[in-house]
């Protein structure tokens, strides 16, 4: 069997969610009583895939 200690540790811990996507998904977690941290995601370089690859190559895209 694989090492599942990290998953068991998740099950035993208080859930703290980083939400990447619609804010409402974070809001409904908070309304349920769970901590949620919102990342306001948007396509890097205005959705231009070529530009993203270039930025990534240059180390400028996180």
């Amino acid at each position: 069997m694989r090492d599942v200690s990290k998953i068991l540790s998740l099950f035993r811990s208080e859930l703290v969610t980083v939400n990447v996507g619609p804010r409402s998904f974070a809001e409904v977690l908070e309304k349920q009583g769970y901590e949620a941290v919102q990342v306001d995601w948007k396509p890097a370089a205005g959705g231009d895939k070529h530009m993203q690859e270039l930025l990534e190559y240059l180390g400028g895209w996180e």
Partner: peptide
């Protein structure tokens, strides 16, 4: 609100799950 997962986790080190809808 954070601009990246990395910056969110630095300020919230207890974060243990990431919900992704992009």
């Amino acid at each position: 609100y954070y601009s990246s997962i990395r910056s969110a986790v630095i300020e919230h080190p207890r974060a243990n799950l990431c919900q992704i809808a992009v």
